[in-house]
Design a protein around this nucleic acid. Structure first.
Lengths: 138, 138
DNA sequence: ACCATATCATATTAATTATGTAGGAATTGG
DNA sequence: CCAATTCCTACATAATTAATATGATATGGT
């Protein structure tokens, strides 16, 4: 039940972009230095964010990445789900419902559904803008 | 962000014991058959539950396992934490606080703390007795 | 036109974790 | 005594995680 480093890095990456939103295109190298995260690993992560349309890229000198939308339009949930995949705590809740032959009589499934709702309730109501604000207060 | 098979099995195992609480000692073999979970894997899992004092064992013929306490005295959280370890969504929240040099200025930590509270809020308020009741209703 | 600075693409790797299997020793009720 | 059972330890395999490595491609500034 852990968020992967990839997911945590993606969040810090997006937050870093949000904090530097005025500065135009931000190269991965500088994010890597500020956040102390492997440059090459960040490259992989931002590729996913780019393909999903969460960020815009500009190649070549003076290039880099920037948020495609305003910070308030990104929830933590959007970012984590993109990187981590489904946040359902058990596989049998993903995609097709009732994969599991036990589903109809499974009382533990109720627990997992409540859990997912609780998790979503937190991460779908925090935006990058909230994080930027909190960060600036510190 | 998945509950492991081990954790899920442990919960079903304990629920099975709770459902058969009147029957005296229940052998792993029969739990394995009812729940369709590998006998040898269950053996490992119940060893953990036994060492933690969650169940009582009786060796030899007519032996098996039974709950050490009443079903209402076990929360889902107790069982999952025993098997899964800490349910904090990130490692930096475990054990020693402030391991991470960023902790004081880390706004993502706030998210993880809220997440953990939300998760605990669900799993610490469901007991085996609740599950038994729901199961009997189905 | 050149070149330093970037993104973009793909392959490889080391370590850890997850999910079991296997074999047998020890115990005990009937 | 014997069959059923827990108990103990080691082994196996596949998947995942968290990178690292190498190089191709694009481009703004001089």
């Amino acid at each position: 039940m852990k968020i992967s480093a990839k997911g945590r890095y993606a969040l810090r990456l997006m937050l870093d972009l949000a904090l530097n939103d005025e500065a135009g295109y931000v190269p991965i190298r500088s994010i890597s230095q500020r956040q102390e995260i492997s440059y090459k690993y960040l490259e992989q992560i931002i590729t996913l964010l780019n393909r999903a349309g969460f960020v815009k890229s500009s190649r070549g000198a003076q290039g880099g990445y920037k948020l495609a939308k305003q910070p308030e339009e990104y929830t933590v949930g959007m970012i984590l789900r993109l990187i981590e995949g489904n946040l359902a705590p058990v596989a049998c809740m993903e995609n097709a419902p009732n994969q599991c032959p036990r589903c109809s009589s499974c009382v533990t499934l109720d627990i997992w559904q409540q859990l997912e709702e609780a998790i979503s309730g937190v991460i779908d109501h925090i935006t990058l803008a909230d994080l930027v604000k909190r960060q600036r207060e510190k």
